[in-house]
Design a protein around this nucleic acid. Structure first.
Length: 237
DNA sequence: AATTCATGCAACCGCCTCTGC
DNA sequence: TGCAGAGGCGGTTGCATGAAT
């Protein structure tokens, strides 16, 4: 007959499909009392006829407190697009910058919304993403990411096989994003003004406001990163 | 009103990585 | 050092729902 879906499901007959409110309640109560982790023991201790993986997935994607579903804000879209361009389809890494969102949510949103928007933008503009404001060179940096240049991780995944290398890169991204997000919050107050000195950029058809200073900082970082990649990681520690 | 099609999301599958022995 | 088990991750699928005809 069929292969078992995973080793943990070999011994017990597991239930599949959507979770019921009763199952959610049991799982939620158990995790509240025992904390997440040791998923192997969850179905055993709760009596849930579910695979341990299924329990973990249900918790992390749905039951975990603080999760927000649907209605991605332009700010969140901007972060996702930025990070997808930088990291590729590393949804868990991207999700770590959006604590209220799960990797599954981000992945779904990318596949169902953002990918289409970007593709549409690419076909209509032939890789010329324009800004709704002035057309300075600094406004063009992201277009290369979205249209032609593979993400650094895609350029050479082996270059980031070193955990420390990746960590330091992630740190840098984090710093820049922190500033970028702070900037965005401040700029919300200027939302209806186009003469605020904040550039309106289109990432795959989505307008995102970017502080010029942070924009340059991000651009420099990106350039440096890509340069390092081109040099083949010669400066690796 | 009924049927078909498109879309969005929850969940599954299989592979990879990590950890303990 | 190698192996096995558990957890984590990304790709994909299937179903529910809404829109279009």
């Amino acid at each position: 007959m069929g292969r078992p879906q995973c080793p943990c499901c070999e011994k017990i007959r597991v239930k599949k499909g959507p979770w019921t409110p009763e199952e959610d309640g049991i799982l939620f109560t158990y995790i509240q009392q025992n904390g997440p982790g040791n998923w192997r023991s969850v179905p055993i201790n709760t009596g849930l006829m579910r695979c341990s993986k299924s329990c973990r997935l249900r918790w992390t994607n749905y039951l975990r407190p603080g999760i927000k579903h649907g209605n991605f804000t332009p700010r969140e879209e901007g972060i996702i697009i930025h990070l997808q361009a930088l990291l590729g389809n590393r949804w868990a890494a991207i999700a770590s910058y959006l604590p209220q969102r799960t990797d599954n949510d981000i992945k779904n949103y990318w596949n169902t919304h953002l990918k289409k928007k970007i593709k549409k933008q690419q076909t209509t503009s032939s890789c010329k993403i324009t800004t709704s404001g002035s057309s300075t060179t600094q406004n063009e940096f992201i277009s290369t990411d979205l249209c032609a240049t593979p993400s650094p991780m895609e350029v050479s995944s082996s270059s980031y096989s070193s955990a420390s290398n990746y960590a330091s890169s992630a740190e840098n991204i984090s710093k820049l994003l922190d500033g970028w997000m702070r900037s965005y919050s401040n700029d919300k107050q200027l939302e209806d003004r186009n003469d605020s000195g904040v550039n309106l950029e289109q990432f795959g058809g989505i307008e995102v406001k970017v502080d010029p200073v942070l924009h340059d900082e991000f651009e420099s970082f990106l350039d440096k990163w890509l340069l390092d990649e081109a040099l083949g990681g010669q400066n690796e520690i």
